[in-house]
Design a binder for these strands. Sequence first.
DNA 1: CACAAGAATTAAACGATGTTTAAATTTAAA
DNA 2: TTTAAATTTAAACATCGTTTAATTCTTGTG
Lengths: 222, 222
Amino acid sequence: MAVETLGSRESTRSKNMAKRRETILREARSLIADEGFEALKIRDLAARAGLTVPTIYNLVGGKNEILAVIIEEMVVQLRALQDAARIDPVEESFAKLIEDLADHFATDEAFYRAAFIAGDRSGLFEQSSGEGIFAHFVQQPIETCTRAVEAGLLRGQIAPEVLGPQIYGCYRLARQDWANGYFDLNGFRKQALVGVFLCLASDAKPAFRERLMSKIAGLTSG
Amino acid sequence: MAVETLGSRESTRSKNMAKRRETILREARSLIADEGFEALKIRDLAARAGLTVPTIYNLVGGKNEILAVIIEEMVVQLRALQDAARIDPVEESFAKLIEDLADHFATDEAFYRAAFIAGDRSGLFEQSSGEGIFAHFVQQPIETCTRAVEAGLLRGQIAPEVLGPQIYGCYRLARQDWANGYFDLNGFRKQALVGVFLCLASDAKPAFRERLMSKIAGLTSG
DNA sequence: CACAAGAATTAAACGATGTTTAAATTTAAA
DNA sequence: TTTAAATTTAAACATCGTTTAATTCTTGTG
């Protein structure tokens, strides 16, 4: 395929193609942010990019390929955020991830909302990067719960393999509800954090439980 | 509209129209169960129902109207199930609702999966019956939590207005994951129940907490 | 520098789908 | 039986994703 060799040599042609491809993806992100992926029309995209329809098919692909490229870029960014959140103490680890995610989404809220909706619907998140973003992202809460048991914060009465996915579910549901417009990014922060802290509280030893309760109280009073 | 007077008189015409309308909706449900709402083609539906395309528009409407009718029927059924689950003790109330839902979905699993996916995507659940199914369905866990506090099962350290939506979220996420094919109906039962019991445990008094823990252990060991 | 080969771009069309229009048909009442 | 209204129908319309075949342009070569 010609596309695979984009930019491999610094020929005029390759550079122009790479530049056009970036233009296509940039305008696609903009259009998706405006009205969602379903409303993205290839003809509109071609007009906005100053190209014709078959050029888009040549340089990127059809609607599904465009979405796949955009989702893949997003997944890479999300993984970086998660990797940056492996810190102590336990509850700060979850709080930092949620805060980082919210800040990241805030840089282009309309786009990320539309992208998550499209990604969820297409099943692309689960196919992304080999084994699925779900399987990858759920590992961190499991590991963090294991650390919390070792640190004497959790009782360990509930296996980390049970508690971890529940915690990940709290974040996931909050993200979906934000993407679907049920609340804004502050609602996302609050909903995700309260859910995570509640899950932790269910297996927390008394002292840690009190810490979580005061955090929940602070989140739900204001 | 002619449709509104369907069956208002027992004329031959009215009866035939009502019968055809039912045929359309029955075949629509069948086609949706086969391949999902997005794959439902009006021409296919017309052929299956032994009618032509504009007749469907006359008797029911376009794709969105068809979906709206089907979703509305589903919401009525779901409300009936929820109303039937207002029982004691507290954890049995949630368990009965989840069990009833799973049994209900099992009667036509392919259809309900497709209907939930379509309903979630269209936002029809939130528009359904005036104030939205979400706002209605979240009331029961809130009330049940309030009763649990009064009964001395929960500490009340977390407001029922906070705990109730979290519990409803557990059921909602399990339903979505089932609809999206991440697990089967048994997985739905288990995921929903474990989530609900975890939420309750976060605010449970010791004796109730132990009851919940043994239930969770029974669910996650098998 | 001119030219031939190959690649990228374009105009146009194809196929599918939701929806609507206008004519034909059927029904209920006078 | 006839007439007026309503229903059903065949056909077309509009839009969209996608593909084909011809045109234009770039690159390497004689």
